[in-house]
Computed example of a mutant assay.
Amino acid sequence: LEKELDYTAVKFAHKKLNSIYIGGGTPTTLNPKQLDRLIRKIKCSFDLSDLVEFTVEAGRPDSITKEKLMVLRNHDISRISINPQTMKQETLDLIGRHHTVQQTIDSFYLARELGFDNINMDLIVGLPGESLSDVADTMEVIRKLAPDNLTVHSLAIKRAARLNIQRERYQDFEIVNTADHIALTSKVAEEMGLFPYYLYRQKNMAGNFENVGYAAPGKAGVYNVLIMEEKQSIVACGAGASTKRVWVQPNPDGTHRIERAENVKDVAQYITRIDEMIERKSRLFTKE
């Protein structure tokens, strides 16, 4: 990863870096020293004078500790994400999440105590066995916590997800996501002073709805907007990372040519084939 970061820093030294997002997984699975090393490497390698947002997806509450949050604070990370998915403990146990509702609440308040003033929380609507009443209960807990961002996902069952691999375990649980569920989350978000600023869709989504990001004024995630609008190139490093090049010159119809370079997902393969991953990026950005 450090080798790929070194290449990226040199290759794009002439570009202005306005947003950094460490996520796509759970960076806080790293221990405090590893997390500190990663962020120091980024800060030492890149010119951050034009940076407007630095997000770290803390993600799973069971991976969050005071020591890790202090590392993020000491590096002036401007935005973090703490993702409960739901505030119903029975559902968390059912879908194999290893955190508790109380861990989510404790992690959130700890982050607030340490001075984080832009916290996102992710929820999933349409989880097995959850009723409209369950979603309402979750939203009331979220209301009390008062995050600065809220991302409401409609359940999308991916091939490698536990819900898909162990589908027989969940066959007796109804998966429901209706317009009423979406309207409820939207209503509570608005009452909290959060307003929609981006949305996107995925394959196999329950109810055929969208994922919607809500934010308080001035707290919208810059990276989220940039990646959804597909008007700016994004260089990604690490196993499973997807780099996107957006050509500046528009097509005759006003759209822009977009191509991607994918890193392999398997960590061992990523390490072994790191030179190939770097070469993929190089080829992408040397194309006419």
Rank of each mutant, 00 (worst) to 15 (best):
V141I: 13
K15Y: 11
D76I: 00
T151F: 04
L184K: 07
V235M: 04
I82N: 06
F209L: 04
A160E: 13
S107H: 06
I42V: 14
D134M: 02
A268E: 14
V235D: 05
M121S: 15
C237I: 12
E67R: 08
L51G: 05
V125C: 09
Q89W: 09
H14P: 01
Q103F: 08
V10I: 15
G24F: 07
M70Y: 00
P196W: 04
E140K: 12
L72Q: 08
R112P: 07
A160H: 13
W247Q: 05
S81G: 01
A236D: 03
I42M: 08
Q269A: 15
A111P: 02
E67A: 13
E67C: 05
R79C: 08
E53Y: 09
L5G: 00
P147F: 03
G221K: 06
C237W: 02
Q202Y: 01
P84V: 03
D93Y: 07
A216R: 15
D172N: 15
P250N: 10
E57Q: 09
F173S: 08
F173V: 02
D47W: 03
G24W: 01
K219Q: 09
H99C: 07
R40T: 15
R260S: 10
M277R: 01
G129W: 06
P217G: 09
A161I: 04
S49Y: 00
Q269N: 12
E168P: 03
R245T: 07
A136R: 10
V222T: 13
I20F: 07
